[in-house]
Structure formats: C-alpha cells, structure tokens
Amino acid sequence: MDQLTGVTIEAIDLAAWAPQALDVQAVAFGLTPEEVMVRLHIVGRHAQQPGVIALGAFDGGRLVGFGYGMPNRREHWWSTVIQPYLEAGGHGDWLDGVFAITELHVLPGFQGHGIGSTLIRTLCERSGLHRSILSAIDAETPARRLYRSLGYRDLARAVHFPNTERLYAVMGAPLPLPARPGGQSAPANSR
C-alpha cells in the first residue's frame, strides 16, 4: 500500500493533547493564532464533558490527525445554535440520544488515505449510541463528501454560528456507519 500504512489510531487525553491537536486543526482548517487560543479554551472545557471520546492519528509518534465527540446535550452551546434550524426542518429529535462529532481534522498531506474515516468510525463505534450528528462547512468539500460516503445526510443547511461568516450544514447518520466501499480495510491501525 502507501506510506501511510504505519499510521495508528489511539485514544488520547484530550486536555493533554489539546495544543498539538489545535496545531493540526490550524493547518487543516486554516485557523489564525487568535482562533487557536480561543479554541484551546473551548477544547479544555470539552475535555471535561461526560462521555467525551478523543482519538489521535499518529505517524511515528507525531499527531497527524485527531477527532473527538461526546453525547449531545441540548444545553450545549452548539445545540442551542442548531436547534432552530433542525426544528424548522422537522429534525429536532436529532438533538437527543446522539453522538456529536465535535472536531475531526487530518493534516493535508495525510488526507485521502482513510485516516479521517477511521477516526470517525472508531469514535462512533465507541459511543454506544445509535445516531451521530456533526456540522461541516456548507460547501462541496472533501469533508462533506467523506461524511456522505459514511451515511451522513443533510439535516439543516445555511446554519450561521456566531463569530463566523462561514455557513454550515448539520448532518446526521444512523450508527453503525457503513463499512468502507469495496470492503477495503482502512490503512490506519485502530487501538
């Protein structure tokens, strides 16, 4: 296969790995240093949430991707923003009993090799819940194509989060997520 076969997926302590994870997110998502500082505080709060699951993708000890999520709760800030959009489309029930993928990022040089799909599949498998929800930039991006290939569908579009000009889509999928197309196994090893 390719040179990425040595990438491993492991559980991480989100609070301890937050600075490295945000370095990955800054490159993958194009964050400014100011945005990284704001998100560092947010990730620290998320690390304390009940049921949070965090995974890192490592290449020789170097973090090249990460993802984390938690059982969704209506009182979470994210839920309060998306609730009116979901309810307007008749999808308000997607706020309850679902696993929210909070962040999922892979360094550009490691994208397109199954790392992101392995991260999200493993997070969802470990959640013990029957549905998953996430938000993504509302554009035809590789991330949106990945989520669709895993069974996520649009629940709301043109969602506006405060402090950003980008519009987002909220997507949901039943769990478990489908196997990789063609029965191929992911190149990353999951621990």
Rank of each mutant, 00 (worst) to 15 (best):
W78V: 04
R126T: 15
F110N: 03
R145S: 10
G112D: 03
W94V: 02
S149P: 03
Q49P: 00
I133G: 04
T122M: 04
R74S: 12
I120L: 04
L123H: 03
M70S: 07
T102G: 04
I82Y: 12
A100G: 06
D96E: 14
R62P: 00
Y147K: 10
T102V: 14
H41I: 14
V64E: 00
W94H: 04
A139K: 07
R39S: 07
P108K: 01
R145L: 14
R39N: 07
G109D: 14
A136C: 10
A100I: 08
R45W: 04
L146I: 13
T141S: 08
G114M: 06
A47K: 06
G112R: 04
H41N: 08
R73W: 14
L31H: 03
P108M: 03
R73A: 14
H91W: 15
A143S: 13
G128S: 08
Q83M: 07
R131K: 10
L86R: 02
D138Y: 01
W78Y: 14
L31F: 01
M70L: 11
R131D: 12
G109S: 09
G114K: 08
L146P: 00
R74E: 13
Y85S: 08
E35F: 03
R39I: 13
S127W: 12
Y68F: 14
H76N: 08
H91D: 02
V64N: 02
R39C: 02
G61Q: 09
V98H: 02
W94A: 06
M37F: 04
F58R: 13
G92A: 14
I115L: 06
A100L: 13
A100V: 12
T118S: 07
G89C: 07
W78H: 13
L134M: 13
H76S: 01
L146V: 12
T141N: 05
L123D: 11
H46D: 08
G89W: 06
L86C: 02
G67A: 15
Y85T: 10
